[in-house]
Amino acid sequence: MRITVASGKGGTGKTIVSTSLALCASASGRTQFLDCDVEEPNGHIFLAPDLSLSERCVVTIPRIIEGKCTYCGKCRDICRFNAITIFGQTIMSFNELCHSCLGCFLVCEENAIARDEREIGVVETGLAGSIDFVHGRTRVGEAMSVPLIKAVKKKARQDVLVIIDAPPGTSCPFVETVSDADYVLLVTEPTPFGLHDLQLAVAVLQKLNIPGGVIINRADLGDDRVEKWCAGVGIPVVLKIPFERGIAEGYARGENLIQSQPNLRQPLENLLKELVR
C-alpha cells in the first residue's frame, strides 16, 4: 500500500507528518519511506538514514554528429520544445530544453544523432533504523524534476507499506508523485493560504480519482474555514495537530512529532490502522 503525504501549500508540515507516520508504521512492520520532494528533500533530516547507495539519474539527450548531418531540418521540426536549431550549415541542440521524447532520434535518416545523457540528480538509498529510505536530490540549476521523481518511485516496494513525501504545489511534480497512491493525506493549515492551496490539491486528486483526507496542522492558529470547507465537500478531516511551541522547537532541531510530542503517537497509529485496514 502506498500512502502519499502532500499539501499544495509549502511549509504546512508534510515532512514532519510523513516521517512520523513512517516511524510509527515501522514499529509494527516493514516500512519504506520515499522522499519525492526532490528539489528540497528534507525527510533525511528527520529520519537520519545511513545513505549507503547513490545512483545518478540521467535523461537521454541528443548529440549531433556534424559529419553525418545533412541539415535537412527534420529533427528541428519534430522537436516541440525548440531544443534544436539550424542556421545554414550549423546545427545546435539546447539540452536544457530537451524533454527526452526521442523524436529527433526517430526522424533522423542519416544516423547523425547519437545518444548522450544529462545528469539531473541522484537517487540515494539507505536504512533509517528499520525503515527503507529513498530520496532524490536534483542537481542545482536543473529545471526538470519529473524523471527523478519517477526514478525514486521505481524503488517503491510492492510487499511493504510505502509512505511517500510529495513536493509542494499542484503541477507536474505533484501529479507525478501522487499519481499511483492508494491514499493521499493532504496536510494544511487553517488559514486563507492553506485553504486556497488545499482546494487546488483536492481538485487534482479528484481528477486522478484518488481518495484522500485532510490533516490540519497548527489547528488552533487560524480559524475554522478549512474544516467548514472540508465538511461542505465531503472530505474527511482525519487528524488535527495543535500548534505547540514544543513541536516548532523540536522541528527546528530535526525532531519528528513522536519525539517532540509523544502523545501524538497514538492518534498517528490509529490513523495508520484506519488507512491500512
Binding site: 509549502g10 511549509g11 520532494d37 528539489e39 536543473e142 529545471a143 526538470m144 513536493p167 509542494p168
Partner: peptide, 11 residues
Amino acid sequence: GAPGIGCPVIA
C-alpha cells in the same frame, strides 16, 4: 516566487 529550486523558480 515558488517554493523549491526547479522549473518555475528558475523561470
